[in-house]
C-alpha cells in the first residue's frame, strides 16, 4: 500500500480536513432547517445541484485552456474535494435511504456510477503511472499496435527461418502457441493485476523445446524469448494505459445522463410538491 501513503500526504490531509469542516457546516445548517420544520429537501437538493455544477466547471476549464482561470490541476483538486462534499450532500438528500420509484432509482444509480467511476479514475490515475514506469520503457498508447505488428512479423520470420533449417520445434510452437500470442493484445486481466503467470507459461513452453535444438536453433530460441518478453511488456502497457484511457468513458457519459435526469427530477419535485418554508 505504498501508493496509498503517496496519496495521503500532508496537503491532502489538510484539504480533507477542510472538506470535512465544510461538510459539517452544511450538515449543521441542514439540521437547523429540519428542526425549524422547513423543507430541507430543497436546501440540500440545491446544495447538491450547486456542487455538481461547480464540478462540471472542470470540463469547461479544460476547453478554455487559453484563458487565465487558473491551472487545470487546481480545478481538478477542487473537483476531487467537492466530490467528497457532493457524496455527503447526496446521502443527506436521499436521507440515507434507497429510492422508492423508478425515476429515483435511475437517478440514484447514475449518481452512484458517476461517483464510483470518479473515485476509481482518481485512484488509477495515481496508481497506474508509477506501475507503468517501473515496468520498463513507456510506450505511447497509439503506437502499441504498430510495435505489436512489427513483433508479430519478426516472430513469424524467425519461425519460417527455422523451418528452412529443418528444425520443426520452433515452427510447431509458433503454430500452436506463439502465433496466437503475437496476433493481438493478450492476458489483459493478468496484466491489470501485474501477474507474471501468462508470461512464465509461454517462456516455459519455449524452454521445453530447447533440448531438441542445435546451436543455431538455440540462438533463434533466445531471440524468440526476447520477442515474447517485449510483446508481454507491450501487452502490459496496453492493458494499463488502456484502462487509463477507458475510465473517462465510464465517468463522462453517465455524468451527462445524470444531469438530464436531475433536471427532470427537479421539475417533477416542484410540480408535485406543496413547498413549506
Amino acid at each position: 500500500m505504498a501508493w496509498l501513503n503517496g496519496i495521503l500526504n500532508k496537503s491532502v490531509l489538510i484539504n480533507l480536513a477542510v472538506a470535512s469542516v465544510v461538510f459539517a457546516l452544511f450538515y449543521a445548517w441542514n439540521t437547523r432547517y429540519d428542526l425549524a420544520l422547513r423543507d430541507v429537501q430543497y436546501f440540500n437538493g440545491w446544495t447538491l445541484a450547486a456542487c455538481i455544477a461547480i464540478m462540471m466547471l472542470l470540463t469547461l476549464r479544460k476547453r478554455m485552456v487559453i484563458l487565465p482561470f487558473g491551472r487545470v490541476r487546481f480545478w481538478l483538486l477542487v473537483h476531487y474535494y467537492l466530490a467528497i462534499l457532493t457524496v455527503g450532500a447526496f446521502l443527506v438528500h436521499t436521507r440515507f435511504k434507497l429510492p422508492d420509484s423508478l425515476l429515483e432509482w435511475v437517478l440514484w444509480s447514475l449518481f452512484v456510477l458517476v461517483a464510483v467511476s470518479g473515485i476509481f479514475g482518481a485512484l488509477i490515475s495515481k496508481y497506474i503511472p508509477p506501475k507503468l514506469e517501473a515496468h520498463g520503457e513507456r510506450i505511447m498508447f497509439e503506437r502499441i499496435p504498430v510495435f505489436r505488428n512489427q513483433l508479430a512479423i519478426e516472430a513469424e520470420a524467425l519461425a519460417r527461418e527455422s523451418v528452412k533449417d529443418g528444425t520443426a520445434s520452433i515452427a510447431k510452437l509458433y503454430v500452436d502457441v506463439l502465433g496466437n500470442f503475437f496476433a493481438g493484445p493478450r492476458n489483459i486481466l493478468a496484466h491489470l493485476h501485474s501477474s507474471h503467470v501468462p508470461l512464465a507459461r509461454v517462456l516455459d513452453e519455449l524452454s521445453s523445446i530447447e533440448r531438441y535444438l542445435d546451436d543455431a536453433g538455440k540462438a533463434r530460441l533466445v531471440k524468440m524469448r526476447e520477442l515474447v518478453e517485449t510483446k508481454d511488456n507491450l501487452d502490459f502497457q496496453y492493458a494499463n494505459a488502456g484502462l487509463l484511457r477507458l475510465w473517462p468513458f465510464l465517468h463522462l457519459p453517465p455524468t451527462y445522463a445524470l444531469l438530464v435526469i436531475a433536471v427532470v427530477h427537479v421539475i417533477l419535485a416542484y410540480a408535485f410538491s406543496a413547498r413549506i418554508g
Partner: peptide, 14 residues
C-alpha cells in the same frame, strides 16, 4: 496567450 504555455496550464496531474 494570456496564460503562458497552454501545455502546463492543461496538465491535470502536475
Amino acid at each position: 496567450q494570456l496564460t503562458g504555455p497552454a501545455c502546463v496550464q492543461a496538465c491535470p496531474h502536475d
